[in-house]
């Protein structure tokens, strides 16, 4: 035993260190993924006996209006959430200067990311609230008729995404700020001598050096958009009449909420969401792997 350890110490040590994390990951992530896939093939209320129905849950999804509403909203989230990248970059460039008290300004801009999503949702709900909401009052003053964003099926998702963008921009900003710290001053100097300024400087000199930061920012933003749940739950609970649902919330509604007793159907929604996420995640992993291999 001891001899074996002595001989293979170098090979075994990394695995030993990985073991606790890997075991946790297997039990709490990998296991549930496969179990969800399994449950999605059953009709089950979470209490009684499970009944095998094969792919019937998925067949039902295809005809389910609410599923398409959720899917459409997820796409909206994904597209609009990506505007956090240019916005975060802009704020980061703006704050990347040395004037008195800049640390304070930076931390103030970072503040929305520090507070909980639930609080952000509550603040924006009040912001939009008919009657006393600031935004409602502003629209009323401008057009004569207030708009209760969270009660309008055409606006509600945009209203929630705007609330989500606020902390997300702060997050992207901090990623770019740290990236900007690592921009090589000599290259900037050299570019300046060659006459590069403004957009050209940004596009050809700064941005290429920010690529690692951009990559991480894209990853966290895409995943953040796909797993959006808390804001929807806090601000509208999917309403009005389900028009602000996203897939993760729809899954919760079907399987776990007050009126949800359909574990199998909820699991099927989760599997679809997982498949969508896998497209992005495998893309990211493939890119990381390629970058590592190229080095």
């Amino acid at each position: 035993m001891l001899g074996l350890w002595k001989r293979h110490q170098r090979r075994m040590a990394p695995w030993l260190f990985l073991a606790p994390g890997a075991a946790m990951f297997a039990v709490y992530v990998i296991g549930p993924i496969f179990r969800s896939m399994w449950i999605s093939l059953y009709d089950w209320d979470g209490l009684g006996a499970m009944r095998w129905i094969g792919l019937a849950n998925y067949a039902e999804l295809i005809d389910d209006e609410a599923f398409y509403v959720s899917l459409r909203n997820n796409v909206l989230w994904l597209v609009l959430y990506l505007t956090a990248l240019p916005a975060g970059l802009f704020v980061a460039l703006f704050l990347n200067q040395s004037v008195a008290g800049i640390r304070l300004y930076k931390s103030l801009f970072f503040f929305p990311f520090v507070i909980s999503q639930v609080v952000v949702g509550l603040m924006f709900s009040w912001f939009y609230a008919p009657g006393f909401g600031l935004f409602y009052g502003l629209i009323e003053a401008l057009t004569g008729k207030g708009v209760a964003i969270l009660a309008e099926e055409d606006w509600v998702t945009y209203g929630i995404i705007a609330a989500g963008l606020w902390p997300q921009i702060a997050y992207v900003m901090i990623l770019y700020l740290t990236g900007l710290n690592n921009v090589a001053p000599d290259q900037v100097e050299a570019a300046r001598l060659d006459g590069a300024r403004g957009w050209k400087m940004l596009w050809f000199v700064i941005l290429p050096q920010l690529r690692p930061a951009t990559f991480i920012a894209v990853v966290v933003t895409v995943i953040g958009a796909l797993r959006s749940f808390d804001l929807v739950s806090v601000m509208t609970q999917g309403g009005p009449w389900g028009s602000s649902r996203v897939l993760s919330f729809y899954m919760y509604e079907q399987a776990l909420s007050e009126y949800g007793y359909r574990m199998g159907y909820g699991a099927a929604i989760a599997v679809v969401l997982f498949a969508i996420m896998m497209v992005f995640i495998s893309g990211f992993i493939w890119k990381m792997w390629r970058d590592e291999a190229a080095r």
């Binding site: 009660a151 309403g239 009005p240 009449w241 389900g242 509604e253 007050e258 009126y259 949800g260 007793y261 359909r262």
Partner: peptide, 17 residues
């Protein structure tokens, strides 16, 4: 039943708007 209740209440809300 729960599922009917949920769908019904969403329908009532939509009807009132």
């Amino acid at each position: 039943p729960a599922e009917m209740a949920k769908a019904g209440m969403e329908g009532f809300q939509e009807f009132m708007v």
